[in-house]
Design a protein around this nucleic acid. Structure first.
Length: 262
DNA sequence: AAATTTACCAACCGCCATCAC
DNA sequence: TGTGATGGCGGTTGGTAAATT
């Protein structure tokens, strides 16, 4: 396996996306949807591989992205979810409307980890550093894909409206049945049986939000082909795309409008 | 003011899962 | 059933802005 086949093709650009490329991609998706990602570059006249287009769209161009700094509540939720599911960023991102797994991952690695360590908590195990000292299976638990990372004993956390702060009304309740919810606050850890790797990995998230199913089609329903026209005609070149999209589309009425207010 | 370090984040890489043939 | 193509995910890298010396 290895590399995506389309990446072998010649003349594919890499690195940062130019505004022109962004525009092409957004226009194309607004008009046709992404369909098969591998065909997007050709149809949209982009010298990129489909994978790259997908990533760019998901992480940056999607109109339902929130961006900006994470709120306290979001941060708390990330920590809780990380304690529950480990480095399964996509699952965590699913509970944070408008945030991408990449964004959350970056935030985790650059900020939260540090904060937790400073508070004496091991970011991998969510246990007090004093308990974890010695190294052991530190990363093992957090690495989602590792077969040894099967989450431990089951607990349930209920997250009631967590993201209202930014006018984002999301999951009225998230019920997570997880194997061993690690202690989130130093010293409050009562359950230390963190190594039951063979415990059932039952994990279920119930989310009531219907706003972010991550579908371009949903977006297109909300802004039927209007996106392209409305946003690309005669706009200043130097406008940053993210701001551009978020700002303009977000200010539109409808569900996304509500979500966007920041 | 210049050099160096740190922090942040966009994007790439490689792997796995799934699907179609 | 086997194989290749594709989508998706998590880990990692590299560029750059900000902070510090």
């Amino acid at each position: 396996m290895g590399r995506h086949s389309c990446c072998y093709k010649q003349k594919l650009r890499k690195g940062l996306w130019s505004p022109e490329e962004d525009e092409k991609l957004v226009k194309h998706i607004a008009k046709y949807g992404h369909g098969c990602w591998s065909s997007v570059p050709k149809l949209a006249d982009l010298q990129r591989c489909g994978k790259s287009c997908r990533l760019r769209w998901i992480n940056y161009l999607r109109p339902d992205l929130k961006r900006g700094t994470f709120s306290q509540q979001e941060e708390k939720l990330i920590i809780e979810l990380h304690a529950a599911v480990g480095n399964r960023w996509s699952q965590i991102a699913a509970q944070l409307p408008g945030r991408t797994d990449n964004e959350i991952k970056n935030y985790w690695n650059s900020c939260i980890k540090k904060k937790l360590r400073q508070s004496g908590i091991d970011p991998s195990t969510h246990r007090p550093l004093s308990e974890v000292e010695g190294g052991d299976d530190k990363e093992a638990m957090a690495s989602g894909r590792s077969s040894t990372s099967a989450p431990p004993p089951s607990h349930t956390i209920e997250c009631t409206p967590l993201l209202q702060a930014n006018d984002v009304v999301v999951p009225s309740s998230i019920s997570i049945s997880v194997p061993d919810l690690r202690c989130l606050e130093a010293g409050s850890c009562s359950n230390t049986s963190a190594n039951s790797a063979n415990s059932s990995s039952e994990f279920e998230l119930q989310i009531s939000s219907s706003l972010f199913d991550g579908s371009i089609f949903q977006w297109l329903e909300l802004f039927p082909s209007k996106g392209a026209q409305h946003h690309f005609d005669g706009e200043p070149e130097d406008l940053k795309w993210s701001e551009y999209l978020n700002g303009t589309i977000g200010s539109d009425d409808g569900l996304l409008g509500e979500i966007k207010k920041e």
